[in-house]
């Protein structure tokens, strides 16, 4: 932001100058008021410095008293300068600096030189006034700068709200336009441009124990429907991952052999969704699965990408049942 403003500032000022030429007098007056205020502040700053120097340089009380008097005189004189005309802060500071340096000298000769200093000050200020009076434009420019700064501050404050350039005559900035565009987009269709994609919401699997050694996946077909996948595919995946056997019973629920909790089934289901439902490029769930030359391909409806997915393999199955039973069955 800072850099942008730095880049934008000069152009703005130029435009303002052109546009605000008729209002110059008012602006100048305002500017004059500002400068006067600014000049008053450094005076206040200067006086304590002087007192400090006085305190440090206490050699004899009489001398200090003289110095104090001189400072009072100086103050009065400065105020008269202000009354005469407009003073610059720079001039004031220079005066102050001069005063400090000369005060060290004044300790030896206090009163008379003070007046002389005042004369010198007069000369300095007068010179500057002379320089400045012919160049009214400079003053105007200063005033305008002040106004510009105020405007910038205001704009910075309003940037968060949106359209800041509505009332003003300045050009809109890129950041402001960006915020405006996004505000409009948010207002018109809040679903689309929140940045967060619509999350894939699914019912949790209902898992019930059947007896001691079997588990029932009650809403199995519902899950298949919400995923838009054939039941056989999901079935084979679940059985392969869990390393068990199972089947669909009359009530369209899946009976799995072995003890499984809902969390375990959910984990497997999540893995299935990650691998076979969500698109691998855009992660949308709007996909369909089709078989081609013994391979499964996942095609995305939103981004039209197409990629192959791993075939479901159960791998090696260890013998878990009792061998005697197997032998008995075989015979």
């Amino acid at each position: 932001m800072a850099e942008d403003e730095a880049i934008f500032d000069p152009t703005m000022k130029k435009k303002k100058k052109k546009k605000k030429m008729p209002f110059d007098l008012e602006a100048a007056l305002e500017g004059g008021g500002d400068t006067q205020e600014s000049t008053e502040a450094p005076e206040k700053d200067d006086t304590p410095k002087n007192t400090d120097t006085n305190e440090t340089e206490k050699k004899s009380e009489d001398m200090d008293f003289d110095l104090d008097l001189s400072i009072k005189k100086k103050k009065k004189k400065k105020k008269t300068f202000d009354m005469d005309g407009m003073d610059d802060a720079l001039a004031e500071i220079e005066n102050a600096a001069d005063g400090e340096t000369q005060e060290a000298a004044k300790e030896s000769t206090p009163a008379e030189i003070n007046d002389f200093d005042a004369d010198l000050d007069f000369a300095l200020t007068k010179k500057k006034k002379k320089k400045k009076k012919p160049k009214l434009e400079d003053l105007e420019a200063e005033a305008l700068e002040g106004n510009n700064k105020e405007n910038e501050e205001n704009s910075e404050m309003k940037d968060k709200s949106g359209t800041t350039w509505a009332g003003t005559e300045r050009d809109y900035m890129y950041d402001e336009l960006l915020t405006r565009v996004f505000d409009i987009m948010r207002a018109k269709n809040p679903d689309m441009c929140t940045g967060e994609k619509k999350r894939f919401v699914m019912k949790p699997p209902q898992v019930v124990r059947v007896g001691t050694k079997k588990t029932s996946f009650v809403n199995f077909t519902d899950v298949c429907k919400t995923l838009h996948r054939p039941t056989e595919h999901l079935l084979s995946f679940l059985l392969a991952e869990m390393g068990t056997s199972g089947s669909i019973d009359g009530n369209n629920q899946l009976i799995i052999k072995g003890r499984f909790t809902q969390k375990q089934v959910e984990n497997v289901l999540r893995r299935y969704i990650k691998e076979y439902v969500t698109c691998h490029t855009c992660r949308s769930s709007d996909t369909f699965l089709h078989k081609e030359n013994r391979l499964f391909f996942l095609q995305c409806e939103t981004c039209q990408s197409r990629c192959s997915v791993t075939s479901i393999k159960s791998g090696y199955q260890a013998v878990t049942a009792k061998r005697a039973q197997i032998r008995a069955k075989a015979n």
Partner: peptide
Amino acid sequence: MAVEMSIENLKKTSAADDF
């Protein structure tokens, strides 16, 4: 389409493990 497919397959090691 074929190009997309091949590129997508390059990313995934698991898709190619059949072969």
